[in-house]
Structure formats: C-alpha cells, structure tokens
Design a binder for these strands. Structure first.
Lengths: 207, 207
DNA sequence: GTCTATAGTTCGATAGAC
DNA sequence: GTCTATCGAACTATAGAC
C-alpha cells in the first residue's frame, strides 16, 4: 500500500506542513476507496484512517468527491506520463508498444490500489470532473491506438482490427489491478515483461 | 439492457406472478447497481425502477445485499455453464480455448450490465455469500488455466508462463464489460471472434 | 402482497470554541 | 488548523392498515 499520492513539493515553502496533511488525507481516502468503494466509504472512514476528526477533512478538501477527483487526476497523469515516456523510447512501433505495455502493466500492478480507484470509480465523479478525467483517458487511449495503427500501416504488425486490438492491450494492463496480489508469485516488472511478450504475439500473425 | 435475470420457470406453477415480481426486482437492481454501484444505489432507487414502493422490496428479498447475491450467483453460474459448454466442444486445447474465449468474451459484451456488477461488486457481498461466489470463480479460472497448461504440456501451445497467460485471457473477456457500448461498431460475436484469434496468437510463438 | 408512514441509524457537511 | 457537537438529509428496514 506504499503508494505515493503526493505531488512533488519544493522543500521549505512554508506550506510543507499543510501539504503533508493533504497527502495523508489523500492516502487515507485512497485506501478507503480501494477497500469499500467511493460510495461505501464515509468521511468518518477517511478521517479515521488519516488520524483526524471528520471536520478536519473539510479544511483541506471541499467535498468527499473532491478527494476522489484529486486522486483520479494524479493517477491519470501518472499513467499519461508513463505512456508518453515509453513511446518516446523508440521510433519503431514494435519497440514502442513493448515499452508502453511493460511500463503500463507494471504500473497497474505496483500501484494497484490507485489503479483500481482510477479505473472503476469514475462514475462517482461530478460531470465537470468526469469530463476532465475523460479527456486525459482519451489521450492515453489514442496514443496506444496510434502506435498499433502506425505499426499496422507500416507492415510491422499484422492485425485485422487495430482499434479493437488497442482496446485489448489496454484491458490486459487495466485488469492486472484487479487480480494482482502483493504477496503473489510475480513482481510488477515480471508481469510487465511477460505482458509485453504476449502483446507482441497478438500483433504478429503466425506463419 | 434487455438482459434476462430470471431462471427458467415452468409455466402454470401458481407462483408465476411472484416469480415475475422477483424478476422485475432483479432487473431493477441490476440496472441500478450497474449505473451507480451497490453502495451508491438506495432501496428507493430499486423500488422506483421496479415501479413499486420501497417496502415491497422486502417482501421478496430480505436485504439489499440479498439482491446483489442472487444477481452474482446467476451471473457466475451463467459464465460457468458457458465455459464448461465451450470446453466440451472439442478435445483439442487450441479449439477448446478458442471456443471458450469466443463465448466468454461475447457473454461479457452481450451481458455487460450483469458482467460489470458480477465482476466489480463482489466486495459488497457478506462473507458467507462472498465465499460461495469465490468458489464458483475459482472453478472457472481453474478450468481455463487447465486448458492452457494441458495445451502447453502437449506442445500445442508455446507459453513461458501458463498461469499468468490464463489470467491474461480472463482479463481480456472481463474488461470488455467495461468498454463495450451497445451502439458501438462491433457486435458481441464479432468481438468474441476477434478475441479468439488474439488469444490463439498469444498461445503460439512466432517462428 | 402492496401500500403509507416511520423508526432508528448513519450520512455529508457545518458551527463555533480553542 | 483541529477539535467537539450537531444539523438536516438520506439511508435500510419495519409496522400496521388494507
């Protein structure tokens, strides 16, 4: 559960104490949402997990939904940066997709708590926040779909339905957050490597 | 949303009226749970969706959780029968896994509303009910893992990690329930066929 | 078997002392 | 900035009339 939810903060800004408290609340909310879901979590649950009174929550966040939104925003931005960074590692579609899948999948295992909340609590966001998150999601999906279609057009991949195959690749990574166990047999990196192989097989026809 | 949640009932049993009401309540609960989640759904939501008063719900089901359990049980049994039936179609692992994936995936698309509830609301079940559902799940997972390992041992598949590959195959089907849209470009059967192909590619190494 | 009415609890969020 | 105390609403489930 050691998943950092804080943004990097310059030291000695004077608001360091407040940032720590906000971070502790985000961590508490993340663990609560992951365990019982957004609607199954009360503000008292979050306050207890953070070692504070229910009233203290509202000094730092206006509503319970605001906590979910900040978590969703942080998680989606992390994923976007991981995918962008991996895609920039090469100009070859096959090497790009391998890097993306390895890191995307490993992230969903390593940060399975946040990944679960990010992937499955979106309907609990208010319409404004949901749209902001959906925009980031569409960017991530488009980036992966682009790699598949570019590789298919270049003859690097042999796929009959690039758009559906891109969805399948996303599904593999996303669902790792559901079944991954910290005390399981495989590390996040091992899962990422194996899934990278499986993905390249999906993208290349047998002879 | 035309997803039948009722068990087949012999006509003219005398309790036909009661069965219809129970079925309407299950349908209402299913749609509500799928839209807002179990904890986000009130018994008034379910009653409204079924065209009844909140009190009428409790004549047919003891608690809100009982409704979720009956839905989960029905959904999991449907999946188990689909997987068992598909596996019985052949003795060749490659044909077995193709049939299983085609039908498993198509089911998750066609019954995406139930699939979503079945796959993601398990933590809301009470411990007794959760264990009963988990037993069915383990059977389904074991059945698919068995096909993969049998095929690997027979040299029919070439996989470095059969257990993880079996999880990947399950993930592909499960996550279809998240992204499938009834007004989308592909039918459940089309998705099933494509996913059957992708799965066979994953199970066979390139030369 | 279904209704209206409501009991008893818990919820999200706020007031005001310190 | 954190606390105790609490408001008003919404919740699950039940009581009792019909």
């Amino acid at each position: 559960m050691n998943q950092d939810t804080s943004e990097s903060t310059p030291a000695g800004r004077g608001n360091a104490r407040g940032e720590v408290t906000r971070s502790r609340l985000l961590d508490a909310a993340l663990r609560s949402f992951a365990t019982r879901g957004f609607h199954g979590t009360s503000t008292r649950d979050i306050a207890d997990a953070a070692g504070m009174s229910p009233a203290a929550v509202y000094i730092h966040y206006r509503t319970k939904e605001e906590l979910l939104f900040q978590l969703s925003l942080s998680g989606h931005r992390q994923v976007r940066e991981i995918v962008d960074g991996a895609a920039a590692e090469s100009t070859r579609p096959d090497e790009q997709i391998r890097q993306v899948v390895e890191r995307y999948t490993a992230w969903h295992a390593r940060h399975h708590t946040m990944a679960h909340v990010v992937q499955h609590e979106m309907p609990a966001l208010n319409p404004t926040h949901a749209e902001e998150i959906a925009t980031i999601r569409r960017g991530i999906e488009a980036r992966i779909r682009k790699i598949v279609t570019t590789g298919a057009d270049a003859g690097c991949f042999e796929v009959s339905n690039p758009a559906m195959t891109a969805l399948a690749i996303l599904s593999l990574g996303i669902d790792v957050a559901r079944w991954y166990r910290e005390d399981g047999a495989w590390s996040p990196d091992e899962i990422g490597n194996e899934y990278g192989e499986l993905t390249l097989r999906m993208l290349t026809s047998r002879r």
